[in-house]
C-alpha cells in the first residue's frame, strides 16, 4: 500500500493570502502586513534565489492553484497571446507603479495635513467602497491612509487574478503580476551575469 505523500508546509501558504484578506476586513490596519509580500520576493531574487518566491512561497499563486485544482474553478484555457507580450506586461507594471505612486502621494498629503483621511477602499482603481467600521484613531491618520490604499491595491489585484484564473489557466495572473515582472527582471540579470562569469 502506498502512503499518501505529505505536502511540504509551503503548499499551505494559500492560507496566508486568505487570512490577509479577512484580517483587512476585520481591521484595515492589518493591510500593512502586505508590505512583506512586496519585500520578500525582491530580497529573494536579489540574493540569488531566482523566482523561488513565485514558485514556492507565493500565497496568491497557491490560492489560485487550490481553487482550480480542488474546486475546479478554472476553465483551463490557454492565455490569449496579447497577455503574453512585453507591451502588456511592462505596460501593466508601469500602470501599477503609477497607481502605487499615487497611493504614496495620497498618504503624504494626509501626513502633511493637506488632506483628510478617506476611509474608503477603491476597487479596480475606480469604485469607492465605504470602509468605516474600524476605529483607526489609535494610529496617525497617514498610517491608516496607507493601509486603505495598500489594501485597495491588494484586493484589486486579487480580483484581477481570480478573473484571470477563472477565464484562463490557474496561474495566468503570474504572467503579468507586477511583482513577478520585477523578480523576473532581477533574476534574469543575475542569471545572465553568473553565466558570463562562468564563461570567463
Amino acid at each position: 500500500m502506498s502512503k499518501k505523500m505529505k505536502k511540504p508546509w509551503y503548499e499551505y501558504l494559500y492560507f496566508v493570502s486568505v487570512a490577509y484578506l479577512i484580517l483587512g476586513i476585520v481591521n484595515i490596519l492589518f493591510a500593512w502586513l502586505g508590505v512583506i509580500c512586496f519585500i520578500i520576493p525582491l530580497v529573494m531574487s536579489m540574493s540569488g534565489g531566482g523566482k523561488t518566491y513565485c514558485n514556492k512561497y507565493c500565497g496568491r499563486g497557491k490560492l489560485f492553484t487550490l481553487l482550480s485544482k480542488k474546486y475546479n474553478l478554472s476553465r483551463n484555457k490557454p492565455l490569449p497571446k496579447f497577455l503574453k507580450t512585453n507591451w502588456f506586461r511592462y505596460g501593466f507594471l508601469t500602470f501599477f507603479m503609477i497607481m502605487f505612486g499615487i497611493m504614496i502621494f495620497n498618504t503624504y498629503l494626509v501626513f502633511s495635513g493637506a488632506s483628510d483621511l478617506k476611509e474608503v477602499i477603491k476597487l479596480l482603481w475606480t469604485f469607492k467602497v465605504p470602509w468605516e467600521w474600524v476605529n483607526t484613531s489609535i494610529v496617525s491618520p497617514w498610517v491608516a491612509q496607507f493601509a486603505f490604499g495598500f489594501y485597495s491595491m491588494m484586493l484589486t489585484s486579487t480580483i484581477i487574478g481570480l478573473v484571470s484564473m477563472f477565464l484562463y489557466k490557474p496561474r495566468s495572473w503570474c504572467v503579468y503580476c507586477p511583482m513577478g515582472t520585477m523578480t523576473q527582471g532581477i533574476s534574469t540579470l543575475k542569471y545572465n551575469n553568473s553565466k558570463k562569469q562562468i564563461n570567463k
Binding site: G50, K51, C54, N55, G61, K84, N86, R89, R171, C174, V175, G180, Q184, T188
Partner: peptide, 10 residues
C-alpha cells in the same frame, strides 16, 4: 517554454 513568463513552479 516562454522563459520570460515561466514561474519555474516545476
Amino acid at each position: 517554454v516562454s522563459k520570460d513568463y515561466c514561474v519555474a513552479c516545476g
